[in-house]
């Protein structure tokens, strides 16, 4: 699969944004002089991590469908590893966990690879849902059984089922959009992650009123409104990546950004419940894989199904 010209333009644009962010970050660092500001340090760590993430997605795009599927399969693995680490598992869960990691993830992504929509859209919610508790119950360990099995089912839905809907965009057959399916992935990821970044920027610059201090100390009304509004505008401006009109692209961007925002809140609530600040330490400056993916996880299946409903005959 050769890279569509639109993708090259998008990556050039992202590269420009990252160069600008790097320059600003280094300037802030220099202005701080010898004093170390944790916020600036974190900003620079985040920018550096973005370079790496954009490069990884770029390589995946160059490889094509297989590259994108492998990239998100790996992301699912890392995310599920973080999720399960924070749940209370017992010895009796061992085989159910093995099944989730070593059968659940490969099969789900294989089904996306062979584009079997009828099965990849029910494999985890139906087969996984029923078979995991059966495997776990064989070990006869009833302590916290419901919460253990529910946690694992939630983990699979969040980390594997939802994440797999990003590469699943490559399986949508949209008339007149042949050979450009990678662009839908690029659009979704750019808009949702752009929304996160813009919410962070607006929040840091203007943030006063906290939305949900009990859930996330860094989320403010100013950040939310500024970030979602500008990311919606970004989505409209990127309409040429999609089969949508500019107005439709804006509407899609708005829906995915709002889903992303609430996804961040939901996963924050789980972190608070488990008494941790970050899901992991995998991505310098950001935290774990789930800290970076939380918004895309909630946005991807909705974006997928709205696109499928309106654009796939």
């Amino acid at each position: 699969m050769s890279l569509p010209q639109e993708a090259i333009m998008l990556f050039l644009g992202l590269g420009g944004v990252l160069v600008a962010a790097t320059v600003v970050g280094q300037a802030l660092k220099r202005r701080a002089g010898g004093e170390q500001s944790p916020t600036v340090e974190n900003l620079n760590a985040r920018v550096f991590a973005w370079w790496v993430m954009v490069a990884l997605i770029g390589v995946a795009f160059l490889v094509g469908k297989a590259g994108v599927i492998l990239l998100f399969a790996f992301a699912s693995f890392a995310a599920l590893r973080e999720f399960v680490t924070l749940t209370d598992t017992r010895r009796g869960d061992h085989w159910a966990l093995m099944l989730a990691f070593f059968v659940g993830i490969p099969v789900q992504y294989y089904l996306v690879w062979i584009e079997w929509y009828g099965l990849y859209s029910i494999f985890i919610p139906v087969y996984g849902f029923l078979i995991l508790p059966i495997v776990a119950v064989v070990r006869s360990d009833t302590t916290h059984f419901l919460s253990r099995i529910a946690s694992l089912q939630w983990g699979l839905m969040i980390c594997v089922f939802c994440v797999s809907h990003i590469p699943a965009l490559l399986t949508l057959d949209i008339p007149g959009f042949e050979g450009k399916k990678l662009l839908l992935v690029a659009f979704l990821v750019t808009v949702v992650q752009g929304s996160d970044v813009l919410q962070y920027v607006f929040g840091k610059l203007l943030g006063r009123r906290k939305i949900a201090p009990a859930l996330s100390p860094s989320k403010t009304w100013e950040g939310l409104v500024g970030g979602v509004a500008s990311a919606t505008a970004l989505g409209a401006a990127l309409w040429w990546l999609t089969p949508f009109s500019p107005a439709q692209a804006a509407a899609m961007a708005l829906v995915t950004c709002l889903m992303g925002f609430f996804g961040g809140l939901v996963l924050s609530a789980i972190k608070r419940d488990r008494g941790v600040k970050d899901w992991g330490r995998m991505i310098e400056g950001h935290g774990g894989m789930l800290d970076r993916l939380d918004s895309v996880i909630f946005a991807a299946p909705i974006f997928f199904h709205l696109t499928r409903f309106w654009y796939v005959p």
């Binding site: 599920l80 590893r81 399960v84 680490t85 598992t89 010895r91 061992h94 093995m98 990691f101």
Partner: peptide, 18 residues
């Protein structure tokens, strides 16, 4: 930290956990 959950007693295959 956590290695006991990766390979619980009596299991021979490790499960991925941080």
């Amino acid at each position: 930290d956590n290695m006991a959950r990766v390979m619980p007693k009596g299991e021979f295959l490790p499960v991925p956990l941080l």
